[in-house]
Protein backbone atom coordinates (compact mmCIF):
# COMPACT_ATOMS: atom_id res chain seq x y z
CA UNK A 1 0.00 0.00 0.00
CA UNK A 2 2.85 2.34 0.81
CA UNK A 3 4.36 1.44 -2.52
CA UNK A 4 1.16 2.62 -4.18
CA UNK A 5 1.22 6.04 -2.55
CA UNK A 6 4.87 6.33 -3.54
CA UNK A 7 4.21 5.38 -7.16
CA UNK A 8 4.29 7.65 -10.20
CA UNK A 9 0.64 6.84 -10.82
CA UNK A 10 -0.45 8.27 -7.48
CA UNK A 11 1.82 11.25 -7.95
CA UNK A 12 0.37 12.09 -11.36
CA UNK A 13 -3.10 11.64 -9.85
CA UNK A 14 -2.51 14.21 -7.12
CA UNK A 15 -1.11 16.61 -9.72
CA UNK A 16 -4.36 16.71 -11.73
CA UNK A 17 -7.22 18.56 -9.99
CA UNK A 18 -9.73 17.55 -12.68
CA UNK A 19 -8.90 13.91 -12.07
CA UNK A 20 -9.20 14.24 -8.30
CA UNK A 21 -12.57 15.94 -8.76
CA UNK A 22 -13.77 13.19 -11.12
CA UNK A 23 -12.60 10.52 -8.72
CA UNK A 24 -14.48 12.14 -5.85
CA UNK A 25 -17.60 12.54 -8.00
CA UNK A 26 -17.44 8.96 -9.24
CA UNK A 27 -16.95 7.78 -5.67
CA UNK A 28 -19.99 9.76 -4.46
CA UNK A 29 -22.12 8.39 -7.31
CA UNK A 30 -21.07 4.81 -6.68
CA UNK A 31 -21.45 5.08 -2.90
CA UNK A 32 -24.85 6.73 -3.28
CA UNK A 33 -25.98 3.93 -5.55
CA UNK A 34 -24.56 1.04 -3.58
CA UNK A 35 -25.87 2.28 -0.24
CA UNK A 36 -29.16 3.59 -1.63
CA UNK A 37 -31.32 1.44 0.68
CA UNK A 38 -29.69 3.10 3.69
CA UNK A 39 -29.03 6.59 2.32
CA UNK A 40 -32.06 7.35 0.17
CA UNK A 41 -34.74 9.45 1.92
CA UNK A 42 -37.56 7.23 0.59
CA UNK A 43 -38.03 3.79 -0.86
CA UNK A 44 -39.53 4.45 -4.29
CA UNK A 45 -40.60 0.81 -4.63
CA UNK A 46 -42.50 0.64 -1.35
CA UNK A 47 -46.01 1.09 -2.74
CA UNK A 48 -47.41 1.52 0.75
CA UNK A 49 -45.46 4.67 1.40
CA UNK A 50 -46.38 6.32 -1.88
CA UNK A 51 -48.74 9.25 -1.52
CA UNK A 52 -50.49 10.14 -4.75
CA UNK A 53 -51.20 13.52 -3.18
CA UNK A 54 -47.49 14.20 -3.33
CA UNK A 55 -47.34 13.61 -7.09
CA UNK A 56 -45.70 16.20 -9.34
CA UNK A 57 -44.05 18.12 -6.49
CA UNK A 58 -41.35 20.39 -7.95
CA UNK A 59 -37.85 20.50 -6.44
CA UNK A 60 -37.54 21.69 -2.85
CA UNK A 61 -36.21 25.13 -3.68
CA UNK A 62 -39.20 26.22 -5.79
CA UNK A 63 -42.33 27.81 -4.30
CA UNK A 64 -44.49 24.69 -4.09
CA UNK A 65 -41.54 22.46 -3.18
CA UNK A 66 -41.44 20.16 -0.20
CA UNK A 67 -38.26 19.65 1.79
CA UNK A 68 -39.08 15.96 2.13
CA UNK A 69 -38.57 15.59 -1.64
CA UNK A 70 -35.35 17.51 -2.45
CA UNK A 71 -35.57 16.95 -6.23
CA UNK A 72 -39.35 16.74 -6.42
CA UNK A 73 -41.61 13.78 -7.17
CA UNK A 74 -42.96 12.06 -10.25
CA UNK A 75 -46.51 11.21 -11.37
CA UNK A 76 -46.82 8.47 -8.77
CA UNK A 77 -45.53 10.65 -5.94
CA UNK A 78 -42.14 8.90 -5.90
CA UNK A 79 -39.17 10.90 -4.65
CA UNK A 80 -36.98 11.67 -7.69
CA UNK A 81 -33.72 11.69 -5.70
CA UNK A 82 -34.41 8.26 -4.26
CA UNK A 83 -35.45 6.93 -7.65
CA UNK A 84 -32.15 8.23 -9.09
CA UNK A 85 -30.16 6.51 -6.34
CA UNK A 86 -31.97 3.21 -6.85
CA UNK A 87 -31.78 3.66 -10.61
CA UNK A 88 -28.04 4.32 -10.54
CA UNK A 89 -27.71 1.03 -8.67
CA UNK A 90 -29.16 -0.83 -11.61
CA UNK A 91 -27.19 1.23 -14.14
CA UNK A 92 -23.89 0.63 -12.34
CA UNK A 93 -24.60 -3.06 -11.81
CA UNK A 94 -25.26 -3.52 -15.51
CA UNK A 95 -22.29 -1.31 -16.40
CA UNK A 96 -19.74 -3.10 -14.23
CA UNK A 97 -20.99 -6.55 -15.11
CA UNK A 98 -21.03 -5.82 -18.83
CA UNK A 99 -17.48 -4.46 -18.71
CA UNK A 100 -16.31 -7.45 -16.69
CA UNK A 101 -17.90 -9.75 -19.26
CA UNK A 102 -16.38 -8.00 -22.28
CA UNK A 103 -12.98 -7.76 -20.56
CA UNK A 104 -12.96 -11.46 -19.83
CA UNK A 105 -14.04 -12.37 -23.34
CA UNK A 106 -11.89 -9.79 -25.12
CA UNK A 107 -8.71 -10.42 -23.15
CA UNK A 108 -9.00 -14.19 -23.55
CA UNK A 109 -9.62 -14.04 -27.29
CA UNK A 110 -7.00 -11.30 -27.78
CA UNK A 111 -4.36 -13.34 -25.95
CA UNK A 112 -5.17 -16.44 -27.99
CA UNK A 113 -5.14 -14.54 -31.29
CA UNK A 114 -1.91 -12.70 -30.51
CA UNK A 115 0.01 -15.61 -29.05
CA UNK A 116 -1.12 -18.43 -31.32
CA UNK A 117 -1.27 -16.34 -34.51
CA UNK A 118 -2.02 -18.01 -37.83
CA UNK A 119 -5.56 -19.20 -38.52
CA UNK A 120 -6.87 -18.60 -34.98
CA UNK A 121 -5.68 -15.02 -35.20
CA UNK A 122 -7.09 -14.46 -38.69
CA UNK A 123 -10.49 -15.90 -37.77
CA UNK A 124 -10.89 -14.01 -34.47
CA UNK A 125 -9.73 -10.71 -35.88
CA UNK A 126 -12.00 -10.92 -38.93
CA UNK A 127 -14.96 -11.52 -36.61
CA UNK A 128 -13.86 -8.54 -34.55
CA UNK A 129 -13.45 -6.41 -37.69
CA UNK A 130 -16.92 -7.28 -38.92
CA UNK A 131 -18.46 -6.53 -35.56
CA UNK A 132 -16.63 -3.22 -35.37
CA UNK A 133 -18.33 -2.05 -38.56
CA UNK A 134 -21.60 -1.91 -36.61
CA UNK A 135 -22.14 0.64 -33.86
CA UNK A 136 -21.92 -1.05 -30.47
CA UNK A 137 -25.43 -0.04 -29.53
CA UNK A 138 -26.82 -1.63 -32.68
CA UNK A 139 -25.13 -4.92 -31.81
CA UNK A 140 -26.58 -4.72 -28.30
CA UNK A 141 -30.05 -4.03 -29.73
CA UNK A 142 -29.71 -6.95 -32.11
CA UNK A 143 -28.60 -9.39 -29.43
CA UNK A 144 -31.33 -8.20 -27.09
CA UNK A 145 -33.90 -8.58 -29.86
CA UNK A 146 -32.80 -12.12 -30.73
CA UNK A 147 -32.92 -13.25 -27.10
CA UNK A 148 -36.29 -11.57 -26.63
CA UNK A 149 -37.69 -13.37 -29.64
CA UNK A 150 -36.23 -16.71 -28.67
CA UNK A 151 -37.43 -16.81 -25.06
CA UNK A 152 -40.99 -16.83 -23.68
CA UNK A 153 -41.98 -13.49 -22.20
CA UNK A 154 -42.09 -14.52 -18.54
CA UNK A 155 -38.71 -16.24 -18.74
CA UNK A 156 -37.28 -13.19 -20.42
CA UNK A 157 -38.50 -10.83 -17.74
CA UNK A 158 -36.76 -12.88 -15.09
CA UNK A 159 -33.42 -12.81 -16.80
CA UNK A 160 -33.76 -9.42 -18.49
CA UNK A 161 -30.91 -7.86 -16.57
CA UNK A 162 -28.57 -10.65 -17.59
CA UNK A 163 -29.65 -10.33 -21.20
CA UNK A 164 -28.79 -6.63 -21.14
CA UNK A 165 -25.41 -7.37 -19.54
CA UNK A 166 -24.70 -10.02 -22.15
CA UNK A 167 -25.83 -7.78 -25.02
CA UNK A 168 -23.70 -4.82 -23.96
CA UNK A 169 -20.74 -7.03 -23.05
CA UNK A 170 -20.73 -8.81 -26.38
CA UNK A 171 -20.97 -5.53 -28.26
CA UNK A 172 -17.73 -4.29 -26.71
CA UNK A 173 -15.31 -7.23 -26.69
CA UNK A 174 -13.49 -6.44 -29.98
CA UNK A 175 -11.92 -3.32 -28.48
CA UNK A 176 -10.33 -5.39 -25.72
CA UNK A 177 -9.38 -8.21 -28.06
CA UNK A 178 -7.67 -5.96 -30.56
CA UNK A 179 -5.68 -4.05 -27.96
CA UNK A 180 -4.62 -7.20 -26.13
CA UNK A 181 -3.72 -8.90 -29.40
CA UNK A 182 -1.50 -5.96 -30.36
CA UNK A 183 0.31 -5.90 -27.02
CA UNK A 184 0.60 -9.68 -27.06
CA UNK A 185 2.30 -9.60 -30.46
CA UNK A 186 4.88 -7.24 -28.99
CA UNK A 187 5.37 -9.20 -25.77
CA UNK A 188 5.45 -12.58 -27.50
CA UNK A 189 8.63 -11.64 -29.34
CA UNK A 190 10.38 -10.33 -26.24
CA UNK A 191 13.22 -12.40 -24.96
CA UNK A 192 11.67 -13.22 -21.60
CA UNK A 193 8.92 -15.12 -23.43
CA UNK A 194 11.54 -16.91 -25.52
CA UNK A 195 13.38 -17.81 -22.33
CA UNK A 196 10.17 -19.40 -21.02
CA UNK A 197 9.78 -21.29 -24.30
CA UNK A 198 13.33 -22.61 -24.08
CA UNK A 199 12.45 -24.09 -20.69
CA UNK A 200 9.53 -25.74 -22.44
CA UNK A 201 6.59 -24.14 -20.64
CA UNK A 202 3.19 -24.74 -22.25
CA UNK A 203 1.72 -21.92 -24.35
CA UNK A 204 -1.17 -21.62 -21.89
CA UNK A 205 1.17 -21.15 -18.95
CA UNK A 206 3.27 -18.60 -20.83
CA UNK A 207 0.17 -16.66 -21.84
CA UNK A 208 -1.26 -16.58 -18.33
CA UNK A 209 1.83 -16.05 -16.20
CA UNK A 210 4.12 -14.10 -18.52
CA UNK A 211 2.16 -12.29 -21.23
CA UNK A 212 -1.07 -11.47 -19.40
CA UNK A 213 0.45 -9.37 -16.58
CA UNK A 214 2.34 -7.33 -19.16
CA UNK A 215 -0.65 -6.49 -21.35
CA UNK A 216 -2.99 -5.45 -18.54
CA UNK A 217 -2.19 -1.70 -18.41
CA UNK A 218 -4.07 -0.82 -21.62
CA UNK A 219 -6.87 -3.17 -20.58
CA UNK A 220 -7.33 -1.18 -17.39
CA UNK A 221 -7.65 2.01 -19.44
CA UNK A 222 -10.16 0.55 -21.89
CA UNK A 223 -12.15 -1.01 -19.08
CA UNK A 224 -12.51 2.36 -17.36
CA UNK A 225 -13.50 4.11 -20.58
CA UNK A 226 -15.86 1.23 -21.44
CA UNK A 227 -17.66 1.63 -18.15
CA UNK A 228 -18.93 4.98 -19.40
CA UNK A 229 -19.97 3.39 -22.68
CA UNK A 230 -21.72 0.49 -20.93
CA UNK A 231 -23.72 2.76 -18.62
CA UNK A 232 -24.78 4.87 -21.59
CA UNK A 233 -25.62 1.80 -23.65
CA UNK A 234 -27.81 0.47 -20.88
CA UNK A 235 -29.51 3.86 -20.56
CA UNK A 236 -30.10 3.93 -24.31
CA UNK A 237 -31.58 0.44 -24.33
CA UNK A 238 -33.78 1.28 -21.36
CA UNK A 239 -34.78 4.57 -22.93
CA UNK A 240 -35.87 2.65 -26.01
CA UNK A 241 -37.79 0.35 -23.74
CA UNK A 242 -35.86 -2.82 -24.49
CA UNK A 243 -33.49 -2.77 -21.52
CA UNK A 244 -34.15 -3.71 -17.92
CA UNK A 245 -37.81 -4.33 -16.94
CA UNK A 246 -39.75 -1.33 -15.52
CA UNK A 247 -39.96 -3.11 -12.16
CA UNK A 248 -36.25 -2.35 -11.73
CA UNK A 249 -35.99 1.09 -13.32
CA UNK A 250 -32.49 2.22 -14.23
CA UNK A 251 -31.49 5.80 -15.00
CA UNK A 252 -32.43 5.23 -18.62
CA UNK A 253 -35.91 4.03 -17.64
CA UNK A 254 -36.36 7.06 -15.42
CA UNK A 255 -35.40 9.39 -18.26
CA UNK A 256 -37.86 7.65 -20.60
CA UNK A 257 -40.70 7.85 -18.09
CA UNK A 258 -39.90 11.47 -17.27
CA UNK A 259 -39.69 12.35 -20.94
CA UNK A 260 -43.49 12.13 -21.16
CA UNK A 261 -43.81 15.02 -18.73
CA UNK A 262 -41.07 17.22 -20.15
CA UNK A 263 -43.40 19.34 -22.23
CA UNK A 264 -46.15 19.53 -19.67
CA UNK A 265 -43.81 21.48 -17.40
CA UNK A 266 -42.67 18.76 -14.97
CA UNK A 267 -39.11 18.97 -16.27
CA UNK A 268 -37.47 17.75 -13.09
CA UNK A 269 -38.70 14.20 -13.51
CA UNK A 270 -36.48 13.64 -16.53
CA UNK A 271 -33.79 16.32 -16.19
CA UNK A 272 -32.39 15.18 -12.83
CA UNK A 273 -31.87 11.53 -13.83
CA UNK A 274 -30.32 12.86 -17.02
CA UNK A 275 -27.93 15.09 -15.10
CA UNK A 276 -27.03 12.20 -12.81
CA UNK A 277 -26.24 10.05 -15.85
CA UNK A 278 -24.06 12.74 -17.42
CA UNK A 279 -22.15 13.41 -14.21
CA UNK A 280 -21.54 9.72 -13.64
CA UNK A 281 -20.38 8.95 -17.19
CA UNK A 282 -18.30 12.11 -17.45
CA UNK A 283 -16.44 11.51 -14.22
CA UNK A 284 -15.70 7.91 -15.19
CA UNK A 285 -14.50 8.96 -18.65
CA UNK A 286 -12.26 11.70 -17.26
CA UNK A 287 -10.73 9.13 -14.94
CA UNK A 288 -10.18 6.84 -17.91
CA UNK A 289 -8.54 9.62 -19.93
CA UNK A 290 -6.20 10.41 -17.11
CA UNK A 291 -5.34 6.75 -16.63
CA UNK A 292 -4.57 6.43 -20.34
CA UNK A 293 -2.20 9.38 -20.24
CA UNK A 294 -0.59 8.34 -16.97
CA UNK A 295 0.07 4.78 -18.15
CA UNK A 296 1.28 5.77 -21.60
CA UNK A 297 4.97 6.66 -21.36
CA UNK A 298 4.92 8.28 -24.81
CA UNK A 299 2.54 11.02 -23.74
CA UNK A 300 4.42 11.84 -20.58
Amino acid sequence: MRAFFDSDLWWSFTRSPVTVLSAVTAFVCIAGAVFAPWLAPHNPFDLASLQLLDAFKPPAWSAEGDLAYPLGTDDQGRDVLSAIMYGARVSLLVGFAAVAFSTLLGVTLGLLAGYLGGKVDALLMRIADIQLTFPGILVALLVDGIVRAALPRDVHDQIAVFVVIFAIGISNWPQFARTVRGSTLVERNKEYVQAARVIGLSPLRIMVSHVLPNVMSPVLVIATLSLGFAILAEATLSFLGVGVPPTQPSLGTLIRIGNDFLFSGEWWITIFPGVALIVMVLSVNLLGDWLRDALNPKLR
Partner: peptide
Protein backbone atom coordinates in the same frame (compact mmCIF):
# COMPACT_ATOMS: atom_id res chain seq x y z
CA UNK B 1 15.51 -30.24 -22.05
CA UNK B 2 16.85 -29.07 -18.71
CA UNK B 3 20.38 -29.64 -20.01
CA UNK B 4 20.15 -26.72 -22.49
CA UNK B 5 19.56 -23.05 -21.73
CA UNK B 6 19.85 -19.74 -23.48
CA UNK B 7 21.13 -16.24 -22.63
CA UNK B 8 19.77 -13.33 -24.63
CA UNK B 9 21.06 -10.04 -25.94
CA UNK B 10 18.76 -7.42 -24.48
CA UNK B 11 18.97 -7.31 -20.69
CA UNK B 12 15.92 -5.04 -20.69
CA UNK B 13 13.65 -7.46 -22.55
CA UNK B 14 14.91 -10.80 -21.29
CA UNK B 15 13.49 -10.53 -17.75
CA UNK B 16 9.75 -10.33 -17.11
CA UNK B 17 9.33 -6.83 -15.61
CA UNK B 18 6.41 -7.92 -13.42
Amino acid sequence: RSRMQMIFQDPYASLNPR
